[in-house]
Structures are given as structure tokens and as C-alpha cells.
Design a protein around this nucleic acid. Sequence first.
DNA 1: CCGCGATGTATCGGACCGATACATCGCACG
DNA 2: CGTGCGATGTATCGGTCCGATACATCGCGG
Lengths: 212, 212
Amino acid sequence: MLELAILGLLQESPMHGYELRKELTAKLGAIRAAISYGSLYPTLRRLQAAGWIAEAAETPATAEEVPALTSRRGRVVYKITAEGKERFAQLIAQAGPETYDDTGFGVHFAFFARTDQATRLRILEGRRRKIEERREGLRDVLGRAAERLDAYTLELQRHGLEACEREVRWLEELIANERSGRAPTVPQPGTAGGRREDTSPPPPGESRKERP
Amino acid sequence: MLELAILGLLQESPMHGYELRKELTAKLGAIRAAISYGSLYPTLRRLQAAGWIAEAAETPATAEEVPALTSRRGRVVYKITAEGKERFAQLIAQAGPETYDDTGFGVHFAFFARTDQATRLRILEGRRRKIEERREGLRDVLGRAAERLDAYTLELQRHGLEACEREVRWLEELIANERSGRAPTVPQPGTAGGRREDTSPPPPGESRKERP
DNA sequence: CCGCGATGTATCGGACCGATACATCGCACG
DNA sequence: CGTGCGATGTATCGGTCCGATACATCGCGG
């Protein structure tokens, strides 16, 4: 999951670890607290070893002097490689079971702007199915095993059930939107068109006109 | 977290691993998928080594014969020890930062029936505080950094924000209930305004409805 | 009689986290 | 003037938990 997220972010621009963590936190803030450095740095290492990312020269301009005064332990900027982009495309398109759990779905969703419509639909429907299953499980417990559980546990289940129902409704809306061809949900207010300055091939959805 | 959950469940009755997993899934179904055996068995081992739990004799009655025919590889039933109960009480009362994350809070909440009121209140308020912080973070992103993010990411944040607001409201209700002395929430459809706080005397010391 | 799904115990590699360490830089406060 | 403190920045270590896998037993229907 972290791998996918890093690859996705580095496609927008090169970054060093600290920055990456901040962007990750901003982008995934809705689904997970904050990436730990204990995960981030080892993963960066792994991705570099695999050839999916590479170190970029730090500040190629105006880097004349500044010698190895204090042995230079500055920031390390990474950029994605061509192989990395392929890897990302592969990871984003293939859906395993982990694609539908809370974290996995969130990460995939966060990169829907780089995902083709068919895949988006597949993922949304898979997620819906999974949540529906969880919902049924909760209903079962609340129905059949209610008297075996104390009031607090019951209340927890009830709250969880409500969250499931709510998410299913949300997903339904997204799916309907997706099928109708329009990109994201677009609530009410006139959301100004965002600036898109990707340094990569034309991202799929996202813009207004899309060919089915 | 797993440790706390196991200790809590074994206080209701002795169980073997498989059973434990099922009960765990029923009790915590609202917050996590299902405990993996890859966590469960090592943890049982650890708890046993620490002396918190012990193997119970399987079927003490009618266990006359049945010798080591197939070398005996049957189910292993565990029961909690006196030290285990102390450990549970300690874990349930002390609140670290992990007490307020999604999983940690859920597990604590699931055992509120075995938690004293002051601790319940402390945990509910800590959780609320944490969710409020997350909510503020999301509002920030949606406000300030909105134009830097694509519509899908924005929609994710929006959905997350709504979930936060919803949970805060839920927690408020629980806290109010807790303060008023009554135990759990008791939804009761139609009693939207039923916030009676007639200063009724601090009631029952949380009667347990467990089965011996 | 055979397979198959439920029950049941167990291990292994890997992902991720939390704590910790350490170094630099700007700047506010004494 | 300096001194400490918070943000920036890289990195490791131990531990928890997960997913895949293996294997054995039992009851039941075909």
C-alpha cells in the first residue's frame, strides 16, 4: 500500500522523505493517521533497490560550492523512474482482496484521478460488496446474538452498522456518477476547476470531457 | 490490543483458540475484520509464558480413556489466571495514546461493561479530542489546500470529514449518558429530544449480565 | 468410500508502527 | 549575544499483526 502511495505521489513531482510524508498525510488524512518513518524510509530503500525510484540531484542549479564541510548529510530527493511508472500502473489496475479493505481502498481511491474508468468502477463495486458483507455480519450479530452481548458492545455494533449503511450509500452515489460518465461527485457549490499540471501523460478522468 | 481482548474474553469463560477467534470477531466485528491466527496463536503463547493465562484440562469429566492413540493433538483450552485478571484491570484502566486510535478505542469500548465509570468517561473524552483533531486537519486541507488536490481526493476528505462529525456527535451522546449515570445509550426511536437529566442518583454499579 | 467443508493448531515472511537517536537551521526571548 | 526550542530532516530497532500456507480430524451427503 505504501509502495503504491509513494509511486503515485512521486509522479506529481520529485520529493524527499519528509515532504513525502507530509503530502501523504494530506492526501490520505481521511483514512489513516500518518505514515511512520519506520515504514517510509525502508520502503524508499526497497523501491530504489527495485529500480522504481531513483535519487535526484538536489538543487542542480546554484549548487556550485558548498563542499563537504560537515560531510553533507542533507535531504535525499527521489524521483520516479520509467519502470516505476509501469509498476504504478500495474498496481493501480490489478485488484487483490487487499484492494477492498479500509486502507487499501482509500489509497486506491486517492489515486482515482490516475485510474481509468473501468477500474474505478470495478474497485467501487468491490468495495461496496465488501462493506455489504460486513453490514450483514453486523446485522446477524445484532439480531441473533444480541442477548449474549452487553449493552456497550451492542451499541458499538449499532454504530458500526450505521457507518456501513452510510458508506454503502456513498458508494452507490459514486458508482452512479461513474456510470453516468461524469467524474467525481461534485457536491453543490460551484467548485472551481482545479489546476492540473501533471508532468505525465494526460490523466484519464478528472477533466470534463471523457470518451467512453 | 489483542492481549487486552483475549484477557477480556477469557474472563467470561475458558476457550480454545478457534472459539476465541469467533468470539473476538463477533465482539469486534464493528471495528476490525477478523483476527489472524498468525497473531492469535503467538499471542496466546506469550500470555501463557507471562502467566496471564493457563491451559485448562479439556473435558475433565468423561475423559477416562482415550489414550495417546494418535499422540493427542486436540484443542487447547485456555483460562485466565488471577494474575491475568490483574493485568486486564491494569490495561483497561491505563490509557496511552494508542487507547484513542480506531482499533484501540474499539477494543476498550467493547469492554466498557468491565470498566469503571470514571475510566469510561476519560476514554470517551480522549477519543472525542482525537477525532476533533482529525476533523480539524481535514477541514484545513479542504479549506486551504483544496486547489492542490484532485476532485476524487477531495471527495475522500469530504466523506472522512463527515464521518468525523458523525462520530463526535455519537461520542457526545455517550458522554452525556455516562455523566447522567445511566449506562449505555439505549437508542429508542422517537426520543430525539429525550435528554432527561433529572439528576437521578448514581445508579447501579454497572451490573454484569454474564453467564457463569 | 470419497470428497468437502467446518473445526482446529501452528509457523513464516513481510508490512507497518512507535520509540528513539541524531544533526541542522532559524528565530524568539532573555 | 547566546541559548534553547521547534521545525526540518534522515535513519534504525524491536515488536505487533497480517496473509499465506500446511496439516490433521470429524461429520455428512453423494
